[in-house]
Simulated scan of single mutants.
Amino acid sequence: MPTEVALLESRALRIEQMGRVDALDKVKSLVMLPDGIHVRTEDVARYFEVSTGAVRRLTDRHQEEFTENGMRVLRGSELRSFHSDMMSLWGGEEGESYPQAATQLRLFTRRTVLNVAMLLRDSDIARCVRTYLLDAEQEARAGYASLEHRVTRVESCLAGVGAALQELGPVLGRMSHRLDSLDRRLEVTHQVVGAMSVRLTGVSDDIARLDGRMDALARGLKDLNRRNRNR
């Protein structure tokens, strides 16, 4: 479990937490510029309740890291173009004008502001953000541990099922052998029944022929008796 000191000192740990920008609004509302994407140095200082000088010194010391996480410094035509875009979006009260920087403007994204929270030592707000990140990390780790425990239990159950199937293997093999034997016996029985059916068919034909002979013999006897009476 990482500590607050580790988060302050380790860039690798900060990179792991960089996607958790939701932590900012969990602690305090962050007021954005009209584009809803950027904030100025003054806005960052107001959020963390520190001076603008403290924010500038921090960003100067870690300029590479902040730049990688979205910090920009606008000058010249790029600055004028940005101000023009912001003025078109500005919805301030009547008489209130959009605040414009004179020569340069340092812009932060929510990701960069979170980066500030993980580096700014002398701010209660920054400490609250770090605490939220660490608590969320601990809850996530607890959730992973619980999930891993459940997976282990399932694997244990499956191992038991596997052992049971191994024990059932010989039994199933014997049952399969017996079923094959029954199938062969049934096939022999079918053959016997078929042969008996053929024989019975022959016997029926013989009986039919015998009936025909008996009828012919009976007619012959009747004719013979009739001739004897006529004499």
Score class of each variant (00 low, 15 high):
A101E: 15
A101Y: 10
A102D: 14
A102C: 07
T103F: 13
T103H: 14
L105P: 06
L105A: 07
R106Y: 01
L107R: 07
L107W: 08
T109K: 08
R110N: 09
R111P: 01
V113P: 04
L114M: 10
L114E: 05
L114D: 05
L114P: 05
A117I: 06
A117Y: 03
A117T: 06
M118A: 02
M118T: 15
M118L: 04
M118D: 03
L119N: 08
L120T: 04
R121N: 06
R121Y: 10
S123A: 04
S123L: 03
S123Q: 07
I125K: 06
A126D: 05
R127E: 11
R127F: 01
C128E: 14
C128I: 00
T131L: 12
Y132H: 14
L133S: 04
D135A: 10
D135R: 13
A136T: 11
A136L: 07
E137K: 07
E137D: 11
Q138R: 13
Q138C: 03
Q138D: 09
A142L: 11
G143D: 11
G143L: 09
A145V: 07
A145T: 09
L147C: 02
E148Q: 12
E148I: 04
E148G: 00
E148F: 03
H149V: 00
V151Q: 06
V151K: 04
V151L: 13
T152G: 07
R153V: 02
R153I: 00
R153P: 00
V154Y: 06
S156W: 02
G160H: 06
V161L: 12
V161A: 10
V161K: 02
G162V: 00
A163K: 10
A164F: 01
L165D: 04
L165H: 06
Q166C: 03
Q166L: 10
L168K: 05
G169T: 11
G169M: 03
P170N: 01
V171A: 09
L172F: 04
R174K: 14
R174F: 06
R178H: 14
R178M: 12
D180K: 15
S181R: 15
L182I: 14
D183Y: 02
R185F: 03
L186H: 08
L186V: 13
E187F: 08
V188H: 13
T189C: 11
H190C: 03
Q191L: 12
Q191T: 12
V192T: 13
V193G: 02
A195Q: 15
A195P: 00
A195E: 15
M196I: 12
M196F: 11
S197V: 07
V198K: 14
V198L: 15
R199M: 12
R199S: 09
R199I: 10
L200F: 10
L200I: 05
T201P: 00
G202C: 10
G202E: 15
G202Q: 15
V203E: 10
V203K: 06
V203S: 04
S204Y: 01
D205Q: 13
D206R: 13
D206L: 12
I207K: 11
A208N: 09
A208P: 00
L210P: 00
G212Y: 02
G212V: 01
D215G: 09
A216C: 05
A216Q: 13
A216E: 13
A218P: 00
A218Q: 14
A218K: 11
R219Y: 02
